[in-house]
């Protein structure tokens, strides 16, 4: 397998505070990588760095091409969909408008229409809520909308920032099942940031543990899942 996303020596800072100290990680073509870590470890910052939303040094290679230093709008056009922390809903717009915005950069009308139907197959509730103001959706529905909006881009790589956050367990399972389907049937690669480690380790093929801006552990998800000692000391369950 070859890497779709290859991050090397990544450092990131807000003002004078450095929050990533030389992070190396990768997402395989068609693979799912998860980044685990406690609050404030720098997980969100890592995803934002990929999308050009924070100042960084080091290199970020996507499909063999340097994307660090590019503008967010241009990175998105390369097929990187981002489901941000807090979901990033356009609260005053309707559900349908949120989805149309997901496909804003795409020209092929037919494919967009197909994707529109496809995301509604995954999330039928969004069709019912089509004309509703997106801010009035429940938390779970907004998370679905955020994922659906990112899928409307027709992405090759999906970045998901704590998709389970604040949701009922049953909704979380549903969403993770859909993520698995999207990955397996459409070959969309994913970089998933999670605090719910057991869930993420079940989904991903590779995992990294981030601690205050440094990768302290990485390996195949299966191995980490199976190694009680490692799990207890690094992930704490």
């Amino acid at each position: 397998m070859s890497a779709l996303l290859q991050i090397s020596g990544l450092e990131a800072q807000y003002g004078l505070t450095k929050v990533l100290h030389g992070v190396d990680c990768r997402v395989e073509e068609g693979g799912i990588t998860t980044i685990l870590g406690a609050n404030g470890a720098g997980k969100t910052t890592l995803l934002r760095a990929v999308c050009g939303m924070v100042k960084t040094s080091g290199s970020i290679l996507y499909a063999g091409q340097r994307i660090d230093g590019k503008a967010t709008e241009d990175i998105v056009r390369l097929g990187i969909g981002h489901v941000p922390e807090g979901r990033g809903t356009f609260v005053a717009l309707t559900v349908e408008e949120n989805l149309r915005l997901g496909a804003y950069t795409r020209k092929e009308k037919n494919k967009v229409a197909q994707d529109y139907e496809r995301v509604h197959r995954y999330f039928p509730v969004l069709l019912q809520r089509r004309q509703q103001q997106a801010g009035t959706l429940s938390g779970g529905e907004q998370q679905m909308l955020a994922i659906a909006r990112a899928l409307m881009l027709g992405p090759k790589l999906l970045l998901l920032d704590e998709p389970s956050f604040g949701l009922a367990p049953i909704v979380v399972l549903e969403i993770f099942e859909i993520m698995r389907t999207v990955n397996q049937e459409e070959g969309v690669s994913m970089l998933v940031v999670e605090q719910n480690a057991s869930l993420a380790l079940n989904l991903a093929d590779h995992a990294y543990v981030l601690e205050t801006g440094r990768i302290v552990l990485d390996g195949p998800a299966e191995e980490i899942r199976g190694d009680d000692a490692v799990r207890r000391s690094y992930i704490g369950y």
């Binding site: 999308c51 939303m53 967010t72 709008e73 998105v76 056009r77 981002h82 941000p84 990033g88 809903t89 356009f90 609260v91 005053a92 717009l93 408008e97 915005l101 997901g102 804003y104 950069t105 909006r149 881009l153």
Partner: peptide, 15 residues
């Protein structure tokens, strides 16, 4: 309308 409401999310969809 999107850009006025939520610039960050707008960038993330390529606006």
């Amino acid at each position: 309308r999107a850009a006025a409401e939520n610039p960050e999310s707008s960038r993330l969809v390529g606006i």
